[in-house]
Design a protein around this nucleic acid. Structure first.
Lengths: 154, 154
DNA sequence: AATAATATGTTGACATAGCAACAATCTATT
DNA sequence: AATAGATTGTTGCTATGTCAACATATTATT
């Protein structure tokens, strides 16, 4: 139980690596004038032609709904996506890509995937798979921990 | 080259897991009225009794110096740390914990380490070690990628 | 059908993050 | 020693993120 505790260090390393990746992706998307979060929204809508409500987006992106408002506002102002009234719920919008937004993601994705390949370099595929498995298991553990030790709802 | 590209998926999973962890840590530190970044600053100073300059903090935390100003401001206002003029550089401060700040970290650390243990649960130690190694290697790759493909300074 | 409880999206307040520009200071070069 | 260049910390601007509170609308309960 100290600063050299290996399991604590492992969590720190996870956060550091993710931050490094996030920063790299911030620089990466700059050339299209997008933030990583903006890209994530466009990318989600890309594979969902019928659109998403904002609350769905907030769940997929693990962020508060109020945050989606501003992100969608700015993307809508640039004509990359549009809000359409939901046909089934008059409170909600269906957010969907415009043609311009689709064209942009079409352009970005190949570069994006190629960059992912470059970043992994000569990592063996089995190793990557194992890593993903471990990360998924860890995610589950964290969620469980949060439920048990942090939220403890009545 | 598609949304199911395993190496792209692996990077996404890394970001998702880290975000989950970050969110859990936000809730975790709430009970002491600290943000994760605030805790990180205090925790760094805890093992550096002679103090750090703000630029040092910004490098250790991988964030812009302008961001440190506000974080230190708020922690100083709460009496958890203090700015002292640097004896060697009249531009700089030495930021160091107050007794109150040290006492707070003393109280938090055991809970923090115990939580890290709980989160890993029954993960084999060798697996954790391998994971850390992979994450470190990946970090290096990302940095290299950024240097080669993103920054390309003259 | 009327009421209570929930859910969606917006707003306002705030913390956190980045960057550019600035003053003050330090360092290197000449 | 004088100048030019780099560094430290602050400020102002903006984007991103959280939360609480609100209006509107939906769902569940009675």
């Amino acid at each position: 139980m100290s600063q050299t505790n290996p399991r604590y260090q492992a969590l720190l390393q996870l956060l550091r690596t993710a931050e490094t990746l996030w920063n790299a992706s911030r620089v990466f998307f700059e050339r299209w004038n997008l933030s990583p979060s903006q890209f994530n929204i466009l990318n989600l809508l890309y594979i969902q032609p019928e659109g998403c409500t904002q609350i769905e987006l907030s769940r997929l992106l693990i962020m508060h709904r109020s945050n989606i408002t501003g992100l969608v506002d700015r993307l809508e102002k640039r004509g990359l996506l549009q809000r359409k009234d939901s046909s089934t719920d008059r409170r909600a919008y269906k957010v969907m890509l415009t043609a311009s937004g689709q064209k942009l993601i079409d352009k970005i994705l190949p570069v994006y995937y190629a960059s992912a390949e470059k970043i992994w370099g000569n990592f063996p595929a089995t190793r990557t798979k194992q890593l993903v498995g471990d990360l998924e298991k860890l995610s589950v553990n964290i969620e469980m921990f949060s439920q048990t030790h942090l939220k403890e709802k009545p």
